[in-house]
Simulated scan of single mutants.
Amino acid sequence: MKISKLNVYPVKSLGGISLQQATLGVRGLAYDRHWMVVDQVGRFVTQRQLPGMARVSVRLESDWLVLEHPEAEPLAIELASRDRPRLTAYVWDDACQALDEGAEASDWLTAVLGDLRGSSLRLVRFDEEHRRPVESRYLQGEEAHTAFADGYPFLIASQASLDALNRNLAQKGLAPLPMNRFRPNIVLEGAPDFAEDGWRELAAQDGRYRFGLRKPCQRCKITTVDQASGTIDIPGEPLQTLIQMKTQPLRPGAYFGQNATLLGGAGERVSVGDELQVGQ
């Protein structure tokens, strides 16, 4: 089994970046979900509320985070930490310390995405001094924390599982979906479909790093958003099909992929083509 794709999403719910290699950190791949769009009270904003966020593409340059949209000039944010106003940003029930990226970023986002129920939008950066712990009841002796991801530092998915989903969609006369509907960090090939749901650990064959697979990922409305157009063409799919497939027989809902923590290997490089093995 090997890694076939690596993806990082520097700004939560905006476009992803496909990589050939990345640096592993306890909070996830370098720069993953390091920024987030919030409303005026600091509440996180995602494609659940604004599907058009998918149309904002993201680039990482040597010194800049660059956001691009077909209807605006690019926005460049300096990667180096700066003296920025601090605020509290909220992801679900978690209050996180964050840095406000300023009026220019706010104006740019509000112009290309529109306001949210009358609220302008802001771009915030995760305060690296802040620690946002992963829900402890799913951990198995390790400590874990994350940045602005929904709850875990890594999301791991399998190409065979997507292929199985697409076969079920085809039986309904629906077009196959690309993996970007599920926004994983690490995509695997060479394992049976949904085998990942039975794994506890996944490790590089040479032992340089290890992941703990801790919780099946319950999927939401974002999987219904076309990540190229920012539109929802078939409401309810693929969620309805995943529910019918009962990928998690004991859990109600739609599940695809595994939320994971880093058990060892912080600072190591992970690359497309790395051979992996299932741990005990």
Rank of each mutant, 00 (worst) to 15 (best):
E68P: 00
M179F: 05
W199N: 06
A191G: 03
V270H: 05
L29S: 03
D115H: 10
A260W: 00
Q248T: 01
V225L: 09
C96W: 03
A98Y: 01
L213E: 08
S229A: 08
S119R: 14
G207R: 06
Q140R: 12
L87G: 13
R122G: 03
Y255V: 08
V37A: 05
Q49D: 06
I222H: 01
G102Y: 03
V66Y: 02
I232C: 02
S18R: 15
I234D: 07
Q248G: 00
V56I: 15
C217D: 08
G264M: 14
L177M: 12
N259R: 15
R214F: 01
R86Y: 00
V112T: 14
S18M: 14
Q21K: 08
V91K: 10
L262T: 13
Q21C: 11
P216H: 10
E68L: 12
V37L: 04
R208V: 04
D32M: 02
F44K: 12
C217S: 08
L165A: 13
F126C: 11
E78L: 13
M53K: 08
V278H: 10
P184L: 06
V58F: 01
L239T: 12
P178T: 09
I186V: 15
S229G: 02
E135Y: 14
A195D: 07
G52T: 12
W199L: 01
L276Y: 15
D206F: 06
G118F: 05
A160Y: 10
V272G: 02
D83K: 09
L50P: 00
A228H: 11
